[in-house]
């Protein structure tokens, strides 16, 4: 696991108030929304804001690509690496 992926997991836990979790509980390749971690649409907005503030990347709210970038920690890390 790279530093960036760990950082993203910590950001997810902190910004979404996942009180009882630690970074290792989140699978890097597993789906974040609905199945997998079970986050919902409010979490998507909240996480978008947190990623924007932390990594200074620009996100298109309604694009299909954004959905793909937010699929898992791994896809999100890729997106951040390519857009920094």
């Amino acid at each position: 696991m790279t530093d960036l992926e760990t950082k993203i997991k910590e950001l997810i836990i902190e910004s979404l108030d996942l009180e009882d979790m630690v970074a290792d509980d989140i699978d890097t390749d597993e789906a974040l929304f609905v199945d997998g971690l079970g986050l919902d649409s409010i979490d998507a907005l909240e996480l978008g804001l947190a990623v924007k503030n932390e990594f200074h990347v620009v996100l298109e709210a309604s694009s299909e690509d954004t959905k793909k970038h937010f699929y898992s920690v791994a896809t999100l890390a890729n997106f951040i690496r390519n857009n920094k």
Partner: peptide, 10 residues
């Protein structure tokens, strides 16, 4: 001038 938390707003 910070972004607003959508959860908090809701």
């Amino acid at each position: 001038a910070e972004g607003l938390s959508p959860t908090s707003f809701g």
